[in-house]
Nucleic acid binder design. Sequence first.
DNA 1: TTCAAAACCGCACAAAAATGCGGAGCCTAA
DNA 2: TTAGGCTCCGCATTTTTGTGCGGTTTTGAA
Lengths: 208, 208
Amino acid sequence: MQIKVAIVDDDEGIRSGLSALIKRAPGFKLVGEFANGEIALKELPGLAPDVVLMDINLTGMKGYECVRQIKLSHPKMQFLMLTVYEDSDSLFNSLRAGASGYLLKRTASARLLDAIRDVFNGGAPMTPQLARRVVQFFSMPATESAPLAKLTPSEREFLDQLANGYAYKEIAGRMDISIDTVRSYVRTVYEKLHVHSRTEAVVKYLRG
Amino acid sequence: MQIKVAIVDDDEGIRSGLSALIKRAPGFKLVGEFANGEIALKELPGLAPDVVLMDINLTGMKGYECVRQIKLSHPKMQFLMLTVYEDSDSLFNSLRAGASGYLLKRTASARLLDAIRDVFNGGAPMTPQLARRVVQFFSMPATESAPLAKLTPSEREFLDQLANGYAYKEIAGRMDISIDTVRSYVRTVYEKLHVHSRTEAVVKYLRG
DNA sequence: TTCAAAACCGCACAAAAATGCGGAGCCTAA
DNA sequence: TTAGGCTCCGCATTTTTGTGCGGTTTTGAA
């Protein structure tokens, strides 16, 4: 079964290059190519491509804006963003819009085809540098100053259990301590986080 | 220049397997191996490895907990998490703790060495499925949040109050409705979200 | 018009959480 | 050796939550 691919890029040269690559690659089928987001928005739903190669810096409607719109009604259509810059804002805007992968235009042909296959199979290809940037988004050390840092390892583990929704007695079982010890953790953790309810504690925890 | 590697895993077999792999691989140098997080916590800073292979499911201190602690004082030390399960909680806990990559233990040796090099060079290797999960984390509105979409406007407002930690009677005051109406919202919202406690509801809400 | 839904209200009871008070043993750093 | 932090345990009480049952009114779409 072939992977149906569509291309959206306003650079004529790039577009024809990609188009030629897809056309001659076995296992791929080019179902459409567009020079701007507005047209793509209208035509893509009818073509039902599996994967769309989308330029980020389109003139007019931004690439990620186009992705966002289409994702709302066609969540299964996958988008692989192409760009010349490794710029953070574009990356996160695209991810928020629902794009599945993010590559540089200078990516080698073979690697690009791999990436399309990756996206089609549920992966999320991106350059190692961008992957690292995404991963770093999650780590708090940068903004580490929160009261969360003052928690001891056990308290932290307890808080994690809290956030998972377990009742005190379940937490006692899971951590292999008595329910009264759980209660004492409640006290110390709430104190350190300056909260007075489970919900507040969990919210603080989840927000880092 | 060699990449200094350390191993933390409580499974003797796995540890010696990894250890042998690193030792005979050119370009790598094994500087230490540990059976639990507590010892690793003490010894790793002195060894100053470039990359640490860390089992997630350590007995005692969890792997990601160990990472978090060390990252606070040694942010340049990189961690590559190893696990047998592709479980979401472990993944996000690890990323939040500051881990750079996440692989399954059944990863082929060659691929593992590649991953260590990746991490060392600023990349963030992970399985395609996990990468997709990370990427999806950013695109709640379109793709995921199915159950949240079924809430009526009032229910949504109520849920937001819940997430802000207000008690039922406070919510009643803020929304200018009776406390029993609040209770009925609790019922309908919990039903739609398939949860049975405030904490679970709030977590679902915050995560999309 | 008829029907479904949303929005609203009430009572009662059991379960869970929050908080007050107390204590013990262990380890580490001063 | 002493003080302090961490882990752990116990009991009692109040408050909050979860859920069982019931209901009315309004509104918008078929």
